[in-house]
Design a protein around this nucleic acid. Structure first.
Lengths: 254, 254
DNA sequence: CCGGCGCTTTGACAGAGGTCAATGCAGGGG
DNA sequence: CCCCTGCATTGACCTCTGTCAAAGCGCCGG
């Protein structure tokens, strides 16, 4: 189980245009009216006056793939809505072993409100845009707006359910079952183009870090499924789910 | 990874006095004033009038070890505060493989408010007492009492953090590290008697179901630690942590 | 269009942990 | 107080997945 320490997790690989230490760039302010996640984010059912007030507290920010927004263990300074892009939540052991504990998509909420410590790092997997709030200001706003707090609670309860379901995968599923479950999950969450192909926002290493496997095992399982005709693997990050029924069977009940 | 189907998970073992199908027994009503978790449960900082109103919605219930309060997949009918005892939250695969996704103690909250499905089963590990509420009535009450909802949110956020931290253990730690981490965690949460011994509320199988291991691996790891003089194992469920520093080292960073 | 970098794949091998099968033993019931 | 039941321990073995190493090949930059 001793995995080799992976330098890439500390220093950004050279091809990452914006190193993780790059400051977040402000981007076109844009009012809530034209926000792409206006009716799905936690601010959705605020009266529009309140929503604008909340908007005043925050700012729009753009991220490049690879940039880290928050670091595990740091003070919790900001929270945010994801407007666009995909990000990962991750924790790691002292020796570099990493576990991705969540993947978030547009309209999801990130950061740790009502708490002082950031429990996990948040890193952009693709270029992304956030609606970022100072944590204390957000906390204060939420405390005085029941609707917002209710929405945040509902979302947190959902996250907790999903996270606990994932524990079953981590603790009890075989490599084959893990990979099949993962692919089905991505098929549900990512846009599917007309020939049924999805573009994973993750490298093989990151898939491994989600499933609690090594990169080699993930690669072997996926190529074995390809050999069986259950999936196709066009390009480095493409996956076409050819036989979803067979995949479901491989995913092992639930 | 094919674990043998365990009958005990369907039918209660013969020594369980109250089979899981036994109805929950009402017990001495007791007002909130003399409730042992009054100042730690989510109802703690309600004005006492509101708290009594909430109390009217609910009822006190007693459980025997082994009884299941809620079943994974059932409609979400009730939620509850744990007054006394220890309970497990668990999910399982169709073939009987099980993962314990949480262990709850007095003052913790269980059940799925604001949702229609129970995401995991809840089973008493020891005899226990609950303050049980019909879910819909609780939801309604919570919606109109910001303080309660805030407290529930804070607790859910904490649960989510703990759960995600546990994913790192499930996905990335070795058997040795898992067992060491588990023992330290129990040492923090359970009462310690004067000679430093704790009484686990869990069988070896249940420990295995928390850690994503088999019963044999758990047993081997614990006895190996005993051989190393790091812990002692008095009786079937007793554990004395002799060398906490060594245990910390075995638990592997974080 | 080509070259090279780094991710991905593939192979050979090792070892952690699962499986199967006794045996031991704690603790409740008679 | 002793027996019996079922959990826990121990051993032998084997498989799955991790480790180490090398080769393949997308994809970006020039």
């Amino acid at each position: 189980m001793d995995m080799k320490f992976d330098l890439a997790q500390i220093a950004p690989p050279p091809h990452v245009a914006f190193p993780m230490s790059a400051p977040m760039r402000a981007c076109a302010a844009g009012s809530c009216d034209q926000c792409g996640v206006r009716d799905r984010a936690i601010c959705a059912d605020l009266p529009s006056g309140d929503r604008e007030a909340l908007s005043q507290i925050g700012r729009r920010v753009a991220l490049r793939a690879g940039q880290t927004v928050m670091w595990e263990g740091d003070d919790s300074m900001v929270v945010a809505n994801v407007i666009e892009g995909t990000l990962k939540l991750s924790t790691s052991l002292g020796d570099g072993r990493e576990q991705i504990v969540g993947v978030v998509y547009p309209s999801d909420f990130i950061g740790r409100p009502f708490g002082t410590l950031t429990p996990h790092s948040v890193t952009a997997l693709t270029d992304a845009r956030l609606c970022l709030f100072p944590r204390r200001a957000f906390d204060g706003f939420a405390r005085s707006h029941g609707a917002l707090q209710h929405r945040l609670l509902a979302r947190t309860l959902d996250d907790l359910d999903r996270t606990r379901a994932w524990m079953l995968l981590l603790g009890r599923k075989s490599a084959r079952e893990k990979v099949a479950t993962f692919l089905l999950d991505m098929g549900r969450r990512l846009p599917i183009d007309r020939d049924g192909t999805i573009e994973l926002p993750l490298s093989r290493q990151q898939v491994a870090d989600i499933l609690g496997l090594t990169i080699e095992t993930v690669s072997r399982q996926m190529n074995e499924m390809k050999r069986l005709g259950v999936i196709a693997l066009p390009g480095r990050r493409g996956v076409r789910l050819i036989d979803a029924v067979a995949l479901e069977a491989m995913a092992g009940g639930d």
